[in-house]
Design a protein around this nucleic acid. Structure first.
Length: 578
RNA sequence: CGGGAUGUAGCGCAGCCUGGUAGCGCGCUUGACUGGGGGUCAAGAGGUCGCAAGUUCAAAUCUUGUCAUCCCGACCA
């Protein structure tokens, strides 16, 4: 591709709307342009990068025996009604009506395709002999983000690879799941991404096992805990901690229990402000309704209760924070003044709670708190549980080493769906005994443009982007320094032709611009290899080859230059496939 | 949806407080010089100051409304 024939609007200055590196650099390097909040046009360089990621995904999907199809983005709302996801998606689902003759038809733009694919398969699969089957597509998804942000990382319209597996047994599901998991590792590896597979909550979609693939990045929206020792990594909502039950006896030096007035001061922050203490000195007492029964849950003041863990400990289906009336009835005080001292009914505590010596808690009486609260003396616990979100420094459940808190960009998600959709949409098969069962499904997503944005976010220096060769819009950038020197241009053209002939993706900077402009743009757009043909070097029969991150170029004789670059490109590719 | 900020040329910004000629840098066009890390000189093009209403002899500037974008939060199968 010749630069002058393409559309590569690089910018020297950073648009003020862009805050995070990926957004700034993708704009400045001429990869994308914004149409509106949450919707971007991909310009030639950006689109090429996306296409390269898509090609790798296709190869690995095919290798994992998934077959590509293409489903409509337009979907009848009725399908979502049958699975109850109109409510589940809420405003995220883009729905609208169109008229067809005298009828009104309700449609949605697909946020994902479980319904469509399950409906499709239900019509064509009827026997266990046809299973397992995995289909996938690469397609634009639509989700009405209430607040699109982070540039191209969180948009209302985005490219997603979504695969769906159908099996006749859990064993089949597990085999497919593992195949997809492995394929994902290969895909991200080949894309040159630093990624962490993490254990994840499967969310309202249902199912029992799930992994997210995260790119560690400061600006990532998701938070995960990670142990370098054991490699354990998990989504914050899901993460176990290696903590155990501590002593439940009061310490010898325990201060006396004392009631203090805290008028109208009900929140943790407010109490801390008034009593000049840290949230970690407080015990937070949350009143939940667990299957309609009130339960008090104790966590340290600076911790976040984890409802999934609480639900599992209590062994209940429904769990919600109690309403004001219930809190008043259970604690005898308004919201904000609950505490474990003298509180009747069921009570469970997090492991860290008894370790708070001389704690501050609500006094179960309006406008009053206790100070000097100690376990074993002022309130009793039989045992403790893991009831809160993990935080940085918590011991790893595998190694016991302290875990780090990392932010991450979710680029992939695999999970075992089970029969949620096959049941609600009637996707059944007959087994060898002629018994009907719902198909057992898995689903597997990759944010294709997030691969590109994630690389832009994490691979750059102060001069610009640094693409891995597999995703780079071009592999080699050829720069003739004097476009009005026919002799020099002839050499440059020949090198360009030769590279193209050898199948190297080459960009030819034929702009009649000054060298400085070309060098700076070259660094900005981050093409892995740069060949410079200049007057001085040419006199000696040399041209320069420089990797994007090399400090200095190597000078290579004209006749071996193409081969040198071709080898470098091949090597770089090989490196990513290891 | 709550809180905050910003809308002036393609991009970055000044002007607004204190109403009276639309400005700067980069980019763009033409020409000359220049020619290995965003060069110099000269001459140009480009703006209903987000939109609407109001106050005023007069509004980029003051008032009200509205729209858009960005940030924090809520939300995000």
């Amino acid at each position: 591709m010749r630069w002058t024939q393409s559309l590569i609007p690089t910018m020297k200055e950073t648009p003020s709307d862009a805050e995070i590196p990926s957004h700034q650099l993708m704009l400045r390097a001429g990869l994308i342009r914004q149409l509106m909040a949450g919707a971007y046009t991909y310009l030639p360089l950006g689109w090429r990068a996306v296409q390269k990621a898509a090609a790798i995904i296709r190869q690995e999907m095919d290798r994992a025996a998934a077959v590509e199809i293409h489903m409509p983005a337009l979907q009848p709302i009725e399908l979502f009604e049958r699975t109850g996801r109109v409510e589940a998606f809420g405003s995220v689902l883009m729905k609208f009506e169109v008229s067809r003759g005298d009828r009104r038809v309700s449609l949605a733009l697909g946020p994902t395709h479980e319904e469509v694919v399950t409906d499709l398969i239900s019509r064509h699969i009827s026997s266990y002999r046809q299973l397992p089957l995995t289909v996938y597509q690469i397609q634009t998804k639509f989700r009405n983000e209430e607040r699109p942000r982070f540039g191209v990382l969180r948009t209302s319209e985005f490219l997603m690879k979504d695969a769906y597996s159908f099996g006749s047994s859990l064993e089949q599901l597990n085999v497919t799941y593992q195949a997809m998991y492995d394929a994902y590792c290969r895909i991200f590896q080949r894309c040159g991404l630093n990624y962490i597979p993490v254990e994840a909550e499967s969310g309202p979609i249902g199912g029992d096992a799930s992994h997210e693939f995260m790119i560690p990045a400061e600006n990532g929206e998701d938070r995960i805990v990670y142990c370098r020792q054991s490699g354990y990594a998990a989504n914050l909502e899901r993460a176990e901690t290696g903590r155990t039950t501590p002593s439940l006896q009061a310490a010898a030096e325990a201060a006396p229990l004392q009631m203090v007035d805290t008028p109208k001061v009900g929140s943790i922050d407010a109490v801390c402000g008034l009593l000049k203490c840290a949230p970690s000195q407080m015990i937070k007492t949350l009143i939940y309704l667990a299957d309609e029964q009130p339960v008090a849950v104790l966590v340290r003041g600076d911790h976040e209760a984890n409802e999934g863990k609480i639900r599992r400990v209590l062994g209940v289906q429904n769990l919600e924070l109690a309403d004001e009336a219930t809190i008043q009835r259970v604690t005898g005080a308004p919201v904000g003044f609950a505490g474990p001292v003298g509180l009747g009914g069921r009570m469970i505590a997090d492991h860290d709670v008894p370790q708070v010596a001389n704690a501050i808690t609500g006094a179960n009486s309006a406008d009053q708190h206790y100070i000097g609260v100690n376990v074993g003396r002022d309130y009793q616990l039989e045992t403790t549980y893991d009831l809160r979100n993990a935080t940085a420094g918590d011991p790893c459940p595998k190694s016991g080493e302290p875990m780090e808190l990392v932010h991450g960009i979710e680029v992939g998600h695999v999970f075992k769906l089970g029969t949620k959709y096959s049941e609600s949409l009637g996707a059944m098969f007959l087994d060898e005994h002629e018994t009907r069962h719902p198909l057992i499904m898995g689903c597997y997503g990759i944010g294709v443009n997030r691969i590109v944005a994630g690389l832009a976010e994490t691979c750059h220096d102060d001069k610009g982007l640094i693409w891995p060769i597999s995703i780079a819009p071009f592999e080699v950038l050829v720069i003739p320094l004097k476009t009005d020197d026919p002799e020099l241009m002839q050499v440059a053209e020949k090198i360009y032709d030769e590279l193209v002939k050898q199948g190297v993706d080459t960009l030819f900077d034929d702009r009649p611009a000054r060298p400085g402009v070309k060098f700076n743009d070259a660094d900005l757009i981050g093409i892995p290899y740069r060949m410079v043909i200049g007057g001085k070097g040419l006199q000696e029969g040399l041209i320069e080859i420089k990797g994007r991150t090399d400090e200095f170029p190597q000078k290579v004789p004209l006749d071996s230059a193409v081969k040198t670059v071709v080898d470098l490109v091949a090597q770089a590719h090989a490196e990513l496939r290891k």
